[in-house]
Design a protein around this nucleic acid. Sequence first.
DNA 1: TGGTGTCGCGCAAACGTTTGTGTAACCTCG
DNA 2: CGAGGTTACACAAACGTTTGCGCGACACCA
Lengths: 341, 341
Amino acid sequence: MTSDVPSPRDEPVTLAAIAARAGVHVSTVSRALTPGANGVSPATAQRIRALAAELGYQRDPAATTLRTGRSSIFGVLVPRLTDFVLARIYEGLDAAAARHGYNTFVANTTDDPALRRERLEELLARRVAGIVLGDARLDGDDLVKILARRNIPYVLVSRRLTGHLSVTTDDLLGGRLAAEHLLQLGHHCVGVAAGEPYASTGVERTTGFVRRYAEAGFPLPPEYVLPSRFDTAGGHAAGAALLDLDPRPTAIFAVNDTAAIGVIGALREHGLRPGSDVAVVGYNDIPVAADMPVPLTTVHSPMFEMGQQAMGLLIDRLHGRRVRSKRLRPHLIARDSTLGD
Amino acid sequence: MTSDVPSPRDEPVTLAAIAARAGVHVSTVSRALTPGANGVSPATAQRIRALAAELGYQRDPAATTLRTGRSSIFGVLVPRLTDFVLARIYEGLDAAAARHGYNTFVANTTDDPALRRERLEELLARRVAGIVLGDARLDGDDLVKILARRNIPYVLVSRRLTGHLSVTTDDLLGGRLAAEHLLQLGHHCVGVAAGEPYASTGVERTTGFVRRYAEAGFPLPPEYVLPSRFDTAGGHAAGAALLDLDPRPTAIFAVNDTAAIGVIGALREHGLRPGSDVAVVGYNDIPVAADMPVPLTTVHSPMFEMGQQAMGLLIDRLHGRRVRSKRLRPHLIARDSTLGD
DNA sequence: TGGTGTCGCGCAAACGTTTGTGTAACCTCG
DNA sequence: CGAGGTTACACAAACGTTTGCGCGACACCA
């Protein structure tokens, strides 16, 4: 029962407590414990640090924030963490933040404009050091305007917005890769589950795809490009609609894997098999894609790295370093959902 | 350009600012803005509240926490948010917390004892109002001991620990349901991807399953019950090992859906089809389960509700109300991965 | 040796809030 | 009408930290 943990009984271990025991002023302790130490001799600094470690001192974040007006927290806004892609990106963000001594505070916005506005205000009230926006909107995003106006450091991730710092995959290229693959397999009548119109991911993947098909001499009729929610149900609905078209598409590109699985569900309801009857291509390469009964052809994107790099850029920006947006390179992984078995 | 948002230029709107404009003392403003208002006349309270609203006042959480020693944040510890089940539970937790005016602060622990210990200390340093533990361990969990010893309000979710407040599904029953289903289909030689030995979820689902089979007169040989990680890769590995047994099991129960999909991947590598060649049962009913090329038979568990109820219990406990652990009722959903097509 | 510079540390104020205590003014009632 | 009680507010301290300022002590150099 020896206390490896500071015992709960004694008075809280604050700067003052350490100062008392060390026989110095509290301000000296504060300086000794601050990495950019100045105005304190190496000897006493060492002594104080040892004492602090021994007592298990932990800086009170509330007091620090109150005094400095800044906290060591980054706010993260995402549509929803149940989307594997965002959850994985968040892990990357958090890991990178931790490496630099920061924490992250994440909030789901469900892509609801009012809610994200509200959540942002909460984050700002907590004096976050910066904001990671995972739910940027193409339809006149007011959040980025607020951030820019108030001069809050921020970075976009996953979704792009011209004129704003971001880390994404090269979605135009990703879309082209999907198209290229299906063209090579001889598909000329294809459909797209295009995602939400306010998300650059869906829009650009679709654009890249459609352009490549147009270049190949097979422009897609508008009704073969359907907006869709990003979840399984959304993909299912879009897939069902696409399969009812005449002529029926021989291949379907869904702008994310979860929706692609929904499309596969719709195929089943039509008595069709993915790969052999209708080719299906997804996007992101989430882990389940490879292990499904019919493995999913998909465009692999480095989600964890995307998160890490976004956080890296944000921290660089915070330190006044010059930063530039990044587009990570995706690549296609062909599996049975297009190759057949 | 009229400011719907408090313009950034002016001095920050604090209690003092409101007090000055209202011609009262700051303490009066504080009391007027506190729900359990006392010692302030209804008239001035109303006047102050109107003024606060007009100025867009937001209470500074750092100052409040510093003064009161408590924040309006609940800490949430989960193994990883990329696990859909935990992400969904978290959404339930957060939604319920928001309804009561609280925020949540979530941290991934990757089931690493050292890391979760570290994360917990960070949360406690932030003076969280309570802790939700989503990664309780059966192998002598030191975190719950710390929480109990320091008298921090907490609740377990997803995983159980006898003697500690928790909200889970009835995993013993869930395991039985899976067994019952496979027995009815005539499977007598079955395998289990049992999950991590330190997680009550996997252990109890396995126990329920194994017991039912023993009762039916088909006790499982130990080598047919394999520990496994909870992710797709873990399920894949366990599945591959089970399929190499002689005699080969005609059905496999995986204690969560993600692992079940991994098992399906292993089946494919063996040239086997789920449902027709080997039956597969998962657990949780994550959304993709229903839409896979061969839809997955699984035990549905109410993840969102689990989160909501856990948070509800924690808040009740905080308010000194008597609370009891809950086990939510799961039910089996039969699909093609056991019924064939 | 005296003037100048640097170093190490103490002092005190401030961040915005909550809350116990003090104190006028008012109401009530015998 | 005066004693006792209540109401409505002001006052001030405190939470733990950071940081500009001041002041001795010491070193250095001419």
